[in-house]
Amino acid sequence: MGAMTDQEERTLDLDDDPDFQRHERRVTRLGWIVLSLFVLAGALGLLGPGLFSTTTSGSDQDAVRLEHDRVAHLDSQTRLTLLLDADAARDGTVTVELTGTWFAGVDVQSVNPQPDAQKLVPGGTAYQFTVERPGPAEVTLGYRPQELGRLTLTAKVSGSTVTTHQLVLP
């Protein structure tokens, strides 16, 4: 028995719709492209932690630089590192003042190393650390973002001010 032609197939009691199927295939193909771009953006770090997601705000001249992911996810464990310059210490202590919408929008869960003192300042908080030996140092903050959108963080250390932004996605 030979193969059925398209016209013969149409005589079957079949509830198909070739026009709809062609349209569906076009939409599906577009969908695959969109999904592939979504995965590519994720792999590159445009949607959260990824290959190129880490950014550092501030320059070598600043007493502090901020290293973090450009994009964070709501209520997921996230880290921000304060890279302190050797000149950041004054009289054996470093005071880091953190202010901005970032501070109100995240739940800080850990500060490593632990600060010797923590003080309230308008719009944020200030951490004070004792410096054992002069030299560059790092302070890591572990936190969970609690607000969606673009959060702004300003860090002040020894008169040097650095501002950065982080986007929080659902």
Binding site: W32, L35, S36, F38, V39, G42, L47, G48, H73, L74, D75, S76, Q77, L169, P170
Partner: peptide
Amino acid sequence: GEDFSLVHAALVIVTLVLLQR
């Protein structure tokens, strides 16, 4: 892991489905 966000879950799902396809 500890990331239960919508974007993370969507990325994992779409990646797995694309890999399978």
